[in-house]
């Protein structure tokens, strides 16, 4: 990704990293979700300061860009922990003990869903269906789906992340 390369605007200040990403997508407003995904992938979060920059590049209002960034569950303005574990809360996983798995995970990591551990290593979140419904319960560890999860495998996964 070339977005880390320093672009200078005419005032000599470092340009916002979102600019290069918007350019990569041809400054097309229909690519806004892709732009936010790329920006988040690169920066670890969507910096709020980038929103007006994106708005200008795509010829949208700031409200429109803010509206999109806040509508979708995936986008977040604040950095998360080094790792994100998402526990599937949907029905197929419920039928195989997802509620108990969630309770165990919250107790084990000493956080509630949506929170980050004290050592800032793991953010625990909910997700709704990973399409692994015949191998429940399932979780997503960063970008890696893991199925047939029980307390033992969950603890081993956490140990492997640290």
């Amino acid at each position: 990704m070339s977005g880390k390369a320093t672009l200078l605007d005419f005032t000599g200040k470092t340009a916002d990293p979102a600019l290069a990403i918007c350019q990569k997508h041809g400054n097309r407003s229909d690519a806004l979700l892709e732009i936010l995904h790329d920006l988040q992938h690169e920066q670890g979060h969507v910096p709020e300061a980038s929103l007006p920059v994106i708005a200008k590049a795509l010829n949208l209002s700031r409200a429109e860009v803010y509206g999109v960034a806040t509508f979708y569950h995936d986008f977040h303005f604040k950095p998360k922990a080094a790792h994100v574990i998402k526990i599937c809360r949907a029905e197929a996983c419920q039928s195989m003990g997802a509620r108990e798995l969630q309770a165990m995970a919250e107790k084990f990591l000493k956080v509630k869903l949506g929170e980050t551990t004290a050592d800032r290593q793991i953010t625990l979140e909910a997700t709704y269906c990973l399409g692994l419904c015949a191998s429940s319960p399932a979780i997503m560890v960063d970008e890696r789906p893991v199925a047939r999860v029980d307390a033992k495998t969950f603890k081993a996964i956490v140990a492997g992340l640290k």
Binding site: A90, E91, A92, C93, C129, G131, L132, C133, A134
Partner: peptide
């Protein structure tokens, strides 16, 4: 956007 729990055929 196969979000229905219990489905995975699209995937």
């Amino acid at each position: 956007d196969e979000g229905d729990s219990g489905t995975f055929a699209d995937r």
